[in-house]
Design a binder for these strands. Structure first.
Lengths: 232, 232
DNA sequence: CCAGTCACTTGATATTTATCAAGCGTCTAT
DNA sequence: ATAGACGCTTGATAAATATCAAGTGACTGG
């Protein structure tokens, strides 16, 4: 299904270190598909038949219980989702929907498990990716359990600022309702939280954020690499 | 350091599928050590020099920020901790301390990474373990974001009941203060939550729990395998 | 251009959760 | 035995967060 006309996939970290032969095998049953915005890709509880790799766009991983819903994380290119379910041949723990137009590679889970045993380079890449995912969720848990909503928002803003080379001004990359869900609060509360952070030099207008006193904001937010750093 | 006098280690899921040669290499630099209760094993932020495997006892993985502290999870035998940090050669995201007398295998991280590349059976076992850890934290996150403290406690009790073959009566395996921290609430609140659950047939005396109406409690708690099941 | 939709905001209020202070009961060490 | 320590509980209160109900403003489709 997938051939060399998609070098973008081959060069992803996850596939870069494997043999051509393994790659060919892996891709034999794979699809590369483009989805419009707001399309449901996966529903939690289903069997994990495919490993998904997001090549372009963005995907919301969310979960529901008892009529409540929450965003567990937002996936940006290039990353996999549903890797753990694929490995364990288990059911999805989260649902997924596209947030914008997205290009996604879908690889049959069984092939992933098969090639994992055959190709050490791929195995290493899978483990490294999975470990990164694990550490990211641990950080989320710490963020939720150790901080108030206001503190989470403050640190989120500082984090985004760092993503923009420490810029004082940048645009939110999420709708506010979406951001509220990611941060574990209601949209109403997010509005009030933004207002409360005015005291630390935060100004928001639409999607535009201005941090006029990053030092003061940091004094309040107390960011730490052990929670707020995406890389380590 | 470790030889065949510790068959308990060799037969762990993590090590069972590897060659004798790889196992020998892996254990060359390893220690098997017994720690007394309430000993700090690891401090978050340090380099992950060793992979830890808990063979006996129990270990608290906790984290601190801004003078607050929370239990992220309790590790019971047989499982690893710090696996993700070892894989990524990164810093620990959590601190660890023994809760009771515990026997722990410590394997130099570098050896783990080396043998991972050499032994496919070990690689598979590492990935399966890591995927299980990942899914477990995802469930924790969903639990925290989708449920109130009362709902978390109710589901925790139902979960423990299932661990005891659905028994109506069982003993808590954690101190209440510890349990409160795991569930993301204060000890005071846990006390009140237990009282509030009396309405659903929950009675607690010391460490003894009696669930006199599991059906009613389930109607309130709405447990789901996608959050509350340890296995899948 | 206008009406409608929709995300966001704001205010009032309720619920949930934490904090502080005190008290209770059990265990332990002298 | 008894004093203290300690874990737990309880009550009073405060803080954090959610809910409900309007309202605003921007974009969109006819």
């Amino acid at each position: 299904m997938l051939d060399s006309t998609f070098p973008e996939v081959r060069s992803l970290d996850l596939f870069a270190d494997m043999s051509d032969e393994s790659y060919a095998k892996l891709m034999r049953g794979a699809y590369l598909q483009t989805f419009p915005p707001h399309v449901d890709l996966i529903t939690e509880g289903e069997e994990a038949d495919f490993l998904h790799v997001l090549v372009l766009g963005s995907v919301d991983l969310f979960s529901s219980w008892n009529n409540r819903e929450t965003s567990v994380s937002i996936v940006k290119p290039v990353s996999t989702f549903i890797l753990a379910a694929t490995i364990r041949d288990a059911r999805y723990l989260m649902s997924a929907r596209t947030m914008e137009k997205s290009r996604i590679v879908m690889i049959p889970s069984q092939d992933v498990r098969e090639i994992f045993d055959l190709d050490a380079g791929f195995a290493r890449a899978v483990v490294v990716e999975l470990a990164a995912c694990y550490r990211s969720v641990i950080k989320t848990t710490k963020n939720l359990k150790l901080r108030t909503a206001l503190e989470r928002l403050a640190n989120y803003l500082l984090s985004r600022s760092k993503d923009h080379n420490g810029a004082q001004h940048f645009a939110l990359d999420l709708e506010k309702r979406q951001l509220a869900s990611v941060l574990g609060m209601t949209p109403e509360n997010l509005s009030r939280a933004f207002k409360a952070l005015q005291a630390y030099g935060v100004a928001v207008s639409g999607e535009n954020v201005e941090l006029s006193d990053i030092t003061e904001l940091e004094k309040f937010a107390k960011p730490t690499t052990l929670i707020d750093d995406n890389q380590t």
